[in-house]
């Protein structure tokens, strides 16, 4: 899965001279928390990418989030000094901007968002703003990747960290004619890897039993031992 598969393509961008109070109002109105700031956007109204034919010449100069605006004008030690709500947004915008490329794998982008503790990255194709990707998009992608929308039994199986170990696990499941809706790695070290699988069967316990008999270490579901 790539950034272009999960990004929002219709980006609301603003100019650096838009007053902070207007930016606040726009956030509220659009229910958006991040605006990329384009140089030729001036102080005019916000617009969507693709609306103006000269998008290609707009230069990305900054980004602003609800977090940057929250304390403007507040009596608070962390409030930006000497900035008022009537001032242009360029006074509080973050620059330079960390950006993503449409063909970046989403796990790379997720790592960047996390390492820099930021909530969104504009997606740039060369000089052109083509989208925006947020932490929420990452969460949506994770939900989809987990296969949680399919009715299933969840299995956690630990296999040796060596070639073919996952293949033999999947072969053992296929032997019972069950479909696997997702496979994820939950943990790995030098010796072993733990996979979380979602399998389309009501009888997960019987499948677990079958896998244990075949020598697999099934961590979930746990054995039904009500008596001990």
């Amino acid at each position: 899965m790539l950034v272009q598969d999960i990004m929002t393509r219709q980006v609301v961008a603003i100019g650096p001279d838009m007053p902070i109070k207007d930016v606040n109002a726009l956030m509220e109105q659009r229910n958006i928390r991040h605006f990329p700031i384009l140089e030729s956007g001036g102080s005019g109204p916000a617009r969507l990418t693709g609306e103006a034919p000269d998008d290609a010449v707009d230069r990305l100069v900054g980004i602003v989030s609800d977090r940057d605006l929250r304390l403007v004008g507040a009596e608070h030690p962390m409030a930006p000094a000497g900035v008022a709500a009537v001032d242009p947004v360029r006074r509080v915008m973050v620059s330079p901007v960390l950006t993503a490329h449409p063909l970046d794998p989403i796990e790379e982008t997720a790592k960047t968002l996390r390492e820099h503790k930021i909530g969104a990255m504009p997606v740039m194709d060369g000089d052109r703003l083509v989208g925006i990707v947020t932490g929420i998009d990452m969460l949506d992608a994770l939900v989809r990747m987990s296969g949680v929308y399919e009715a299933a039994t969840r299995l956690e199986v630990e296999v040796p960290n060596r070639p073919g170990a996952l293949a033999s696990l999947l072969a053992a499941i296929a032997e019972r004619k069950h479909n696997v809706s997702s496979v994820m790695t939950s943990r790995a070290d030098a010796e072993s890897v733990t996979f979380v699988l979602r399998v389309s069967t009501v009888d997960g316990r019987r499948l677990a039993h079958h896998l244990r008999d075949a020598g697999f270490v099934v961590l979930w579901p746990i054995d039904k031992t009500p008596t001990s």
């Binding site: 009715a151 299933a152 039994t153 979602r198 009501v202 997960g204 579901p221």
Partner: peptide, 10 residues
């Protein structure tokens, strides 16, 4: 029974 432990998980 909680979907945490049992099919269909919801």
């Amino acid at each position: 029974e909680s979907g945490r432990y049992l099919f269909p998980g919801t």
